[in-house]
Amino acid sequence: MTKVLIIAEHDGKHINGSTARAVTCAQGLSAESVEIAVFAAEGTALAEQAATLSGVTKVLLIENPANEHALAAVLAPQIEVLASEYSHVLAPSTTFGKDLTPRIAAHLGVPQISDIMRVESPRIFDRPIYAGNAIVTVEAPAGIVVATVRTASFSEAETTGSATIEKREVNIELPSHTRFVKLETSGGGDRPDLQAATKVVSGGRGVGSKDNFNVIYSLADKLGAAVGASRAAVDAGFIPNDHQVGQTGKIIAPELYMAFGISGAIQHLAGIKDAGTIVAINKDPDAPIFEVADFGLVGDLFEIIPELEKALA
């Protein structure tokens, strides 16, 4: 009997799109029930959003002031209490899910499977290793399956559902050894979220400076796209870390990915393998990015971007 519990990721106001992708993955498990757990300080609105995800049978709302910020050390013991009713506990493979899920698995004494990209059966999955340069098919041992879901491999579930919402109390003592201090977001304004966006405009070391990145933002805004970056661009301080795409940054699957001044190191490509259409603009005709690009254009990004903008106007 397959009963799935998905741990919802949210920012206090919105259920993150990655949760909807985990729901799609769960649907591939031929599950009897797919439930979502929302941990929050006050979570009614969140629970209502989660309840609209198609295929979800129930939403559990666990409200507690301690749940205001997603601290793994605080959430994991609560999930441990709930988990015994389920065959699968899933979370999206975002920094939220990666931080939390192993801690749950260890509490439960079971291994964890990272980055499910394909479901073969309720216990057999594909997952990437070596920055996506090899795929392993793995089988979970007996016991609860605890896993993270590679969001780029699954689309978001639709929002036509209406699951029931159930409030739960988890009465255990929660640790106070971990305290949230602050969150600095780069304040992308109205730009779409990198992981959810259908279009992404990305810049690399070739963009040259923080100021020059404005040309990337400008094109992104005209396209309604999110902004991504290579590690080199982040390391050089051109753009904050949460824009990094790749093996150690975000793994994304937009319909359109436009790479400007990015050479295409394997660690970067690991983040864009699932993009629909990849466009590469690079002045080096031999840049490896052209080996994966659907459309490559050799040239100077500073000349090409204004022309693209003209075409959009």
Binding site: G109, V110, P111, I113, I124, P128, I129, G132, N133, A134, I135, V136, T137, V138, E139, A140, P141, A142, G143, K273, I278, V279, P285, F290, E291, V292, A293, D294, F295, G296, L297, V298, I304, E307, L308, A311
Partner: peptide
């Protein structure tokens, strides 16, 4: 601990290299 069993290892689906366009208009 009980371990995750690796059933097989395969090469990832490779993206087909696309085409190079010559001009912005073409793109």
């Amino acid at each position: 601990a009980a371990s995750v069993k690796v059933l097989k290892t395969s090469a990832p689906a490779t993206r087909q290299a696309g085409i190079k366009v010559e001009t912005v208009d073409e793109l």
